[in-house]
Each structure stands twice: as C-alpha cells, then as structure tokens.
Amino acid sequence: MSVADAPARSGAARWLRWVGKHALTGWAILGYVYLFAPIIVILVFSFNDLRGVTHPFNYTWKGFTLDNWAHPFKYSDLAHAMVKSLQIALIASLIATVMGTMIALAQSRYKLRATSLVDLILVLPLTTPEICLGSSLLTLFLTLGRPGLGFTTILIAHVMFCVSFVALTVKARVRGFDWTLEDAAMDLGAPPFRTFTRVTLPLIMPGILAAFLLSFSLSIDDYIITVFNAGNTITFPIAVFNEQKIAVPPQIDVLASMILLVSVGLIAVGTVSRLVRDSRLASS
C-alpha cells in the first residue's frame, strides 16, 4: 500500500505520517504492556519468599524462593477447590457441548419455524449481566424449597451459560456446511447414525472442539454466577475470593501460573501440529 505514496509531499505531511505510523505501533505496544502487566506480576510473585508468615499477603516482594513451586498444594483448601473447579468445568462443558451442538445442528439442518425465537433465547444469556443470571437461578432454587445448593446447582448454572456459547460457536462453523454430503453418504447406503459419525461429525469437529475449550475456560473461571448457587461448595475462584480477606498465599499465584502455562502449552502444541499437518498437505 505504502508504495503508492504520492511523490510530492510536503515535509510537514511526511512528519505527520511518520508520527501517525509510529504512534499506532507505540500505542499497540503500550496496550500489550497493559495486558501483560498483571500476568508478569503473577509469574514473578509466585516466587515470592513469604515463608514463616502466618497470614501471608503476597503484595510486596520479600525475596526469591522456589519453595512455593515445590509445594504448590500446601494449602489444601485451595488444592481441593481447584480439583472441584476442574471437575465442574469438565462435566459442565461436556454436557454443554453435546447440547449446544445438537441445538446448532438442528437449527441449521432443519428450517425450524421458531428459528428467530431460538436465536433470541440463545443470545439473551450473553446480553444479561452475570449477576442477574446467578441471582435469578438462586431464586428458582430457593422457591423450589431450597434443594441442597452445591455441586449440582453449580453444574446446572454452568451448563446454562455454556450452552449458548457452544451453540453460537458451532453454528458459525456449520453455516457453510454442505448438507448434500449427508445425502451422498446415505445414497451410498450408509445408515443415518453412520453418516453422522463418519461424515458430519469429523467435518464439524474443529468447531465442537473450540466450543468445548471455550466453555471449559468460562466454567473454570466463573465466580459471579457460581457464588450465588454454590451453597457451601468451594470452587477455586470462590476460595480465592474468600481467602483474600485473610491471606493471599503465593500458592494462589503458583496455581494460576500453572493453569496459564498448561493452557498456553496446549495451544502451542495444537497450533504447531496443525501447521505441520498443513505444510505436509501442501507439499504432498
């Protein structure tokens, strides 16, 4: 684009252009600094030496230690909460992925009469503040005669908000899907179930996988909706929120860094393997 620069350009205009060009880059770099500042703090402060303090508040730097990483599960409450969060996220996103995919497929495969209504119901949970979702679910559970709030109610809540995300993600993927492929498979004698597992599913798998990962990360991180429906069950975000009033041990940062490194690692592996596969396809 810049090759087409007008040859005669006044000095002032050129200067303005230079500023314009580099101001954007500079601003973008500042943006990245803003995005990464807390992450760097988390990573650095996970090595903060707060041994010997009964109620450690991991806000000021005291010294370097590897001890926190050697004992990441020192605070068993935090570790248990982490396990619970992982369980909920896994189950909730599995259920949500199956249900959301079915909604998306049904919506694009068949011209449902109430498509726009379904769309509206799918989008509404995304345009409602979490606090309204959480509190309205709580009123439902309360009116139903207070069943034990806990694991099950958290699960219900998480599936509720994940389904929307899954359905919308998979729908975007399915939009350009060529349904005649299914007809072709059936013409070749494949029964409907086999058609689904051998033709439809592999083609929409990337969308489903993305949706699953999205719901997993939403679910494991959710605090606002969860806290309304948790009863006495403690998930990792709830544990952190309750804990931070009394103490902020560096193990919180260690666990957070672990999640970060694992997810970044998974993404890196996924990207690299895809790139390798693509280049192989391209060369063959």
Binding site: Y32, A37, P38, I39, Y59, F236, Q244, L260
Partner: peptide, 26 residues
C-alpha cells in the same frame, strides 16, 4: 493469541495482581 493469553489465568487472581501493582507503597 497474545491478546487472549493473559485471560487464561483466573479472573480473580488477575484482579488481585492489579492490587499488587496499585498498592500504596508500590
């Protein structure tokens, strides 16, 4: 990808990290 990476850490822990950055004797 770099835009999204910071958000793989927990929401609450991220906010606590801001507390570290903004604190009075920081």
């Amino acid at each position: 990808g770099l835009v999204v990476v910071p958000f793989f850490t927990s929401y609450l822990v991220r906010t606590l990290a801001w507390k570290t950055i903004l604190q009075d004797d920081g």
